[in-house]
């Protein structure tokens, strides 16, 4: 039962990672500008390096959280697990409420929670990305700006994966799938551009699906909180 709960929590965390909109939004802008400014090969290079940047930061953050959790829970001064679990529940509920209310700004378009100055600079970087390193940095930067929503998930997932018995192959498989989850939407965006869909269609779809994304994010955070209350406290 415990393993099933861990698997459930990790799958919900993967779902949240895949539904976060900042990295995919910046990536769609990069794809649009790169295909407008450069030949196909160079545009493709920039897109691949953006994905690599996003994946690298996801792996680094997950490993940092895994190491931090290992020291916290398996070190000599193990804290009261109940208190940590209640903190995780509180944070998940707060994030669920934030996703429902503040994830998207009011008004037209699909403007996100990030400050407008940051959004403008990300737009500018996406527009002016010339080299592979620019694209890689931009991908990593987007992963960092999503931290308010992803950091608690990395910590919860690291603990859950650690709690699973290492004999289960599923823990390795889940770790592998979890660190791949943030790039799944990027691969989908890249594929949509490859099959000749445009930024206009993607932007319209993002606006159309705003409420669906809000609901999925809030539902997943809330379910994680309920699973922790029922099975971990």
């Amino acid at each position: 039962m415990s393993v099933l709960v861990s698997v459930g929590i990790v799958i919900l965390a993967m779902l949240i990672m895949a539904f976060l909109q900042l990295t995919s939004g910046v990536f769609s802008l990069l794809c649009h500008y790169a295909s407008g400014k450069y030949p196909k090969k160079r545009a493709s290079d920039l897109e691949i390096f953006f994905i690599l940047g996003a994946e690298t930061i996801a792996v680094c953050l997950f490993l940092c959280c895994y190491y931090f959790s290992y020291i916290l829970f398996f070190g000599s001064s193990r804290p009261e697990t109940g208190i940590i679990a209640w903190i995780a529940v509180g944070v998940s509920i707060v994030l669920a409420v934030i996703c429902l209310t503040f994830y998207y700004r009011k008004g037209v378009g699909s403007r996100l929670f990030i400050p407008r100055k940051v959004a403008r600079s990300l737009n500018k970087y996406a527009k002016s990305a010339k080299t592979r390193s620019d694209a890689f940095t931009l991908g990593a930067l987007c992963g960092t700006y999503e931290l308010p929503f992803t950091l608690p998930l990395y910590l919860i997932t690291a603990v859950e994966i650690m709690e699973m018995n290492a004999e289960y192959y599923s823990s390795y498989l889940l770790t592998f799938l979890y660190i791949l989850a943030p790039i799944v939407p990027l691969l989908i965006v890249r594929w949509t551009f490859l099959v000749h869909h445009s930024l206009a269609e993607l932007a319209r779809a993002r606006v159309r699906d705003k409420n669906f994304v809000r609901f999925i994010l809030a539902f997943s955070y809330m379910t994680i909180a309920i699973l922790i209350i029922c099975f971990r406290i």
Binding site: H32, G109, S110, R111, I114, A119, R120, N123, A200, A203
Partner: peptide
């Protein structure tokens, strides 16, 4: 072109 107009008017509202 409606798509062209949409992108021009909304590109700063995507993120």
């Amino acid at each position: 072109n409606a798509d062209f107009a949409y992108v021009y008017q909304n590109r700063d509202k995507i993120i």
